[in-house]
Amino acid sequence: MQWITLFQKELLENWRNYKWIWVPLAIVLIASMDPITSYYLPQIMEAVGGMPEGASFELPDFQPSDVVMMSISQISSLGVLIIVLMSMGTIAGERKSGVSELILVKPVSYNNYITAKWAGLLVLVWASLFLGMLSSWYYVNILFGVLSFISILKVVFFYGLWLSLVATVSIFYNTLFKTPGLVAFLSIATIMLSSLITKIFGQRFEWSPNNISIYIKEMLVTGSVSADLLATALITIGIIAVLLIGSIFTYKTKELAN
């Protein structure tokens, strides 16, 4: 009951501050840009002045799966940035402004407070990702060739886990610090560092969440969910759970005023 109240407030807040409009729009834009520009690349080149005399330019023959992965890779950079920036103040900002002093002197359970914030954020992230991939799928289908709806749903599911991890990292730093800018910086630094470590020690971190898009691509090509993908997905879920429990724990032991 209390959890629902907190969750509804998150949804209402994100609606009133237009996050429910601009975040999905931005993700749709990011996801559908590459399919369109890749298809119209020859015309674009022509329009901006064409190639020098005698130069020949062979466009690769894009498979639908290649194009979907282009969208994913755009979301991996710009989309992640959007998620971090829009979530950097969700708890930190409330502490900084002082409104949490009113909320947390009410008998509010910290479990409810943190998990409702987390769920409110995740719903927005998943809805945006779904709409983004839906638009990518639409353009892929009309411009590059048939890709089944089921396979795009699978992409959304597995890639959504990665974005959930990004959102959870941000929530975790939100409970540690009350400066939104610092939260954003540390979230991005953490994601970059984990990707660096995964690349350098690739052998040992085969199932690192950073690798999930590699396995998603494999899934699109082969059409089946590999054991590697499942293992990576499970590890991602595990890390999310640990971070979430860690967030609740830090909030419980923390002094909420200063």
Binding site: Q2, T5, K9, G98, E101, L102, V105, K106, P107, V108
Partner: peptide, 29 residues
């Protein structure tokens, strides 16, 4: 916290809520 009510020196609210919404919200909490 069930037994106490507290008003800080400079209370801060959610500026996007109405007065009535805020009271209902904390009441439900």
């Amino acid at each position: 916290r069930k037994h106490i009510g507290y008003l800080p020196q400079y209370p801060v609210f959610y500026p996007w809520m109405t007065g009535s919404e805020f009271l209902v919200y904390v009441g439900k909490l």
